[in-house]
C-alpha cells in the first residue's frame, strides 16, 4: 500500500511540473507589448528593452525556467508584473482565495446534500415520477452548456424573485444564485452516478440472497445497496470537490465575485505571467490532489483492490 501511495505521489508531482512548465512556456509565446500595457506608448524602444530585461524576459528560456523552479522551491511565487506591480503573487492570491474557497465548499456541500439523496430516491422509485423528473433534469444540465443556464438564471430569476444581480459582501442573499448555479451541474452528476450505481447493485445476486435470508427491505437499502454504491463514488468525490472549487471561474465573472477565477481572467488579459503561473499552479495542484485522494480513498474503502504485491488466499 505504501509503495502505491509513494508511486502515485511521484506521478502527481511529475504531472504538476509538466503542467506548470507547459503553461510557463505558453505564456512566453504571448506578444511582448502586453507586458508593457498602457505604458507602451510612453516608453522608448531602449526603455522597453531595459524593462523587459529587468523582468528576466530576455534571458534564454532554459535560464528563465531554471530561475522559476528554484524560486518555486523556496516558496517564492514571484511578484506581480502588471496586475499590481511588485506585489508578491501570494499576497494577491491570498486576498481572493477566501471567496473562491467559501463558494466552492458551499457549492460542494449543497450538491452532495441534494444530489446524492436525489440519486438514491431516483433508484428506489425507478420508472416513477421522481425518476422521470430527475432524469429530465439531468438531461437538461448535460445538454445545455452551463453558460447558457447561468445567464438565464441571472437574468430571469433575479427579476422574478427580486434578487440582486451582483455579488455584494454585505448582502448574504446575493450568495444564493451564484451558489445554486454552481451546484446545478454537480447535483446532476451525483444524482446520475448514485442512481446508476444503486440500480446496478439492486440487480445483483447477493441482494437476492440477502432478501431470502430475511433482511428487511430498508436494511437492505442502507446496509447493503447504498454502502456498496458509495464505493465507486468515493473515487470521484475528492476530485469533484476540488474541481468545484476551481470551476467557478465563469460564475465569479458573471456575478462579479472577487475570487480567484476573476483574478485569473484579469491576469491573463494583462499578461501578468507571475500571477497566472501562480494561479495555474494552485488550480492544478488542487485537481491533482483531488485525483490522488480519490485513488487512495478507493483503495482504502474497497477490500478487493490489492495495490502492490500479494495474491489472494484460495
Amino acid at each position: 500500500m505504501l509503495g502505491y501511495i509513494g508511486k502515485r505521489l511521484l506521478q502527481s508531482v511529475v504531472t504538476l511540473l509538466v503542467i506548470i512548465t507547459i503553461v510557463f512556456l505558453l505564456l512566453r509565446l504571448l506578444p511582448e507589448e502586453g507586458y508593457l500595457g498602457a505604458a507602451a506608448d510612453k516608453m522608448s524602444p531602449e526603455q522597453q528593452e531595459v524593462y523587459l530585461t529587468s523582468l528576466g524576459l530576455r534571458d534564454p528560456i532554459l535560464v528563465q525556467l531554471g530561475n522559476f523552479y528554484s524560486d518555486l522551491v523556496r516558496g517564492d511565487f514571484g511578484k506581480s508584473i502588471t496586475y499590481r506591480t511588485d506585489v508578491p503573487v501570494l499576497d494577491i492570491i491570498a486576498d481572493k482565495i477566501m471567496y473562491s474557497l467559501s463558494f466552492g465548499l458551499a457549492a460542494v456541500a449543497l450538491s452532495i446534500l441534494v444530489g446524492v439523496p436525489l440519486g438514491i430516491l431516483m433508484a428506489q422509485m425507478k420508472g416513477r415520477w421522481l425518476d422521470r423528473l430527475g432524469t429530465g433534469y439531468i438531461v437538461f444540465i448535460v445538454a445545455v452548456p452551463s453558460m447558457v443556464y447561468f445567464l438565464l438564471i441571472q437574468v430571469y430569476i433575479t427579476d422574478i424573485f427580486k434578487l440582486p444581480m451582483l455579488f455584494d459582501q454585505d448582502k448574504p442573499i446575493s450568495w444564493l444564485l451564484p451558489l445554486i448555479s454552481l451546484a446545478l451541474g454537480p447535483i446532476a452528476s451525483y444524482a446520475m452516478w448514485m442512481r446508476r450505481y444503486m440500480v446496478d447493485e439492486l440487480n445483483k445476486d447477493y441482494i437476492k440472497l440477502a432478501r431470502a435470508k430475511g433482511v428487511k427491505e430498508r436494511t437492505l437499502m442502507f446496509s447493503h445497496v447504498m454502502r456498496n454504491a458509495f464505493i465507486p463514488l468515493a473515487q470521484y468525490l475528492p476530485a469533484t470537490i476540488l474541481f468545484t472549487i476551481t470551476g467557478s471561474i465563469y460564475i465569479e465573472s458573471l456575478y462579479s465575485i472577487p475570487g480567484m477565477g476573476g483574478l485569473l481572467v484579469d491576469a491573463i488579459q494583462r499578461q501578468d505571467n507571475a500571477v497566472v503561473q501562480g494561479l495555474v499552479l494552485i488550480f492544478s495542484s488542487l485537481g491533482i490532489i483531488g485525483l490522488f485522494l480519490g485513488d487512495i480513498a478507493m483503495a482504502l474503502v474497497d477490500p478487493r483492490i490489492k495495490l502492490g504485491r500479494g495474491e489472494s488466499v484460495r
Binding site: Y206, L209, A210, K213, N228, I231, R304
Partner: peptide, 14 residues
C-alpha cells in the same frame, strides 16, 4: 431458507 446458485455473486463483495 435458500442456497442460491452462483457462489461467485451471491455474497456481498464489500
Amino acid at each position: 431458507a435458500m442456497v442460491t446458485q452462483d457462489p461467485m455473486t451471491s455474497l456481498n463483495p464489500l
